[in-house]
Simulated assay, not measured.
Amino acid sequence: MKITGDQALVKRINKSLVLDSIRQHAPLSRTSVSRLTGLNKATVSNLVQELIDDQLVLESGEGQSSGGRKPLMLEFNRTAGYAAGVELTVNELTIVLTDLEGEIIARQMMPLQDHQVSTTLELMQQMMTRLLTEVPASVHGLIGMGVGVPGMVDALGNVLFAPNLGWEGVPLRVELEQLFGLPVTIDNEANAGAIGELQFGAGRHVRNLVYVSVGMGIGSGIIIDGEPYKGARGYAGETGHMSVEAYGLPCSCGSRGCWELYASELAYDHALRDPLLDSTTAYWVQQAEWDEPEAIELFRRIGEYLGIGITNLVNSFNPEVVIIGGHMRQAQPWIAPHVQTVVSQRTLPYHRQKLVIQYSELGDQSAVIGAAYAAISQFLGRVRVSV
């Protein structure tokens, strides 16, 4: 009998549902999987067997019985393969190796010498070569690479515009797939951070959130009803370039008064009297820990401007949770009160009901873990379907 594309697609979707249920709720019996997915027991049994054959699901032993034969319990095999997660920032390149549940196995970080595409790819290749020696033996090996970049990315994995890197029209996915011979996903780093927090961090139990990545710039990852919101052409979330000062400082994007000039690490440049000092969040946090008035005042201003931008996002998207991540998370003790005050004063009353402002549970790892998860999702979504 000829199997139509539609039948194969339905089976692939059902198989993905079964695998996702086991991954999220294990240990589960086949009966429980049937109840969770709404699929009949025969379909579940066949799909589970295929997943066992793929070594993505394991039978872990007998469960409790309400009478009769004890059911065999199912577990997701998190070590069936491994993924690489990459975060490219203005100052550094970070690569992690994770299992299929996003647990970091190995990590490397190197500073960027410049922003040339060729030298960035060369550094990535050097780091990946070292990382490959740490991949444990597994049935599926290294299943793919996910990359988060600070800029606008289209559906084909092209970096359209990354003003803080000086990149425009870079076919990054194609370049990396040719370089490494792996499936590659490319996304904005804030979108990757939002996915990381949604799956493994502060957003695990919500369906609507905004993740604000604050480093050498600002980007936002928006999750609506459990799914990333990317806009009509995939470019949503460039909130660092919304104007918060109508006639403010000129920005590298070509506009003026952009949020990130006042609420990201770019704000440090305007605060330093000595341009030779190391202008980093770590430096200013140390100054604040020593109760230096200049640092306390700097974080007050940054916190207030962060609150202004977050107010705009809350009034626009009505999220349950706003998560602040990136390097600026290190300054939480000094910025948090000012962020909260501004948001409480300026958001519409119904929008701030039950609103929670949190700081990344994954620390500086949100984007790399989210990028790795994108590669994992792509791999699990293309799991072989037998017909």
Rank of each mutant, 00 (worst) to 15 (best):
Ile95Cys: 04
Thr79Pro: 00
Gly81Cys: 09
Gly68Ser: 00
Leu97Val: 02
Glu103Gln: 08
Ala83Ser: 07
Thr94Glu: 10
Asn91Leu: 04
Val96Asp: 01
Gly68Arg: 10
Asn77Met: 02
Lys70Trp: 05
Leu72Pro: 01
Gly81Thr: 10
Gly67Ala: 00
Lys70Thr: 00
Met73Gln: 11
Glu92Ser: 15
Glu87Ala: 11
Ala80Thr: 02
Tyr82Glu: 04
Asn91Pro: 00
Met73His: 03
Ser66His: 02
Ala80Gln: 06
Glu62Gln: 14
Lys70Ile: 00
Leu72Trp: 13
Thr94Asn: 12
Leu74Arg: 12
Gly85Phe: 07
Glu87Phe: 08
Tyr82Thr: 06
Val90Arg: 15
Leu93Lys: 14
Ile95Phe: 05
Val96Gln: 11
Gly102Met: 03
Thr89Val: 03
Gln64Tyr: 10
Leu88Phe: 09
Gly85Leu: 03
Glu103His: 10
Met73Arg: 11
Gly85Met: 05
Ser65Lys: 04
Gly68Ile: 01
Val96Arg: 13
Ser66Phe: 13
Ala80Lys: 11
Glu75Ala: 10
Val90Ile: 12
Gly81Asn: 08
Thr94Lys: 15
Thr94Ala: 11
Leu74Pro: 03
Val90Trp: 10
Glu62Leu: 15
Met73Ile: 00
Val90Met: 14
Thr89Phe: 04
Asn77Gln: 10
Glu103Ser: 12
Ala84Lys: 10
Thr94Leu: 12
Ala80Tyr: 06
Ser65Pro: 01
Glu75Trp: 15
Glu101Gln: 13
Thr79Glu: 12
Glu92Asp: 06
Asn77Asp: 01
Met73Trp: 08
Phe76Thr: 00
Leu100Gln: 04
Gln64Cys: 07
Leu88Thr: 09
Leu100Ser: 09
Gln64Lys: 13
Thr89Ser: 13
Arg78Ala: 14
Phe76Glu: 00
Glu75Tyr: 14
Val90Asp: 02
Ile95Thr: 09
Tyr82Leu: 01
Leu72Arg: 15
Asp99Asn: 15
Ala84Ser: 06
Glu87Arg: 15
Ala83His: 01
Val86Glu: 00
Glu103Met: 05
Asn77His: 14
Gly102His: 02
Asn91Tyr: 03
Arg78Lys: 15
Glu62Pro: 00
Thr89Pro: 01
Met73Glu: 02
Leu74Gln: 10
Arg69Pro: 01
Glu92Leu: 06
Glu75Met: 13
Met73Tyr: 12
Arg69Phe: 13
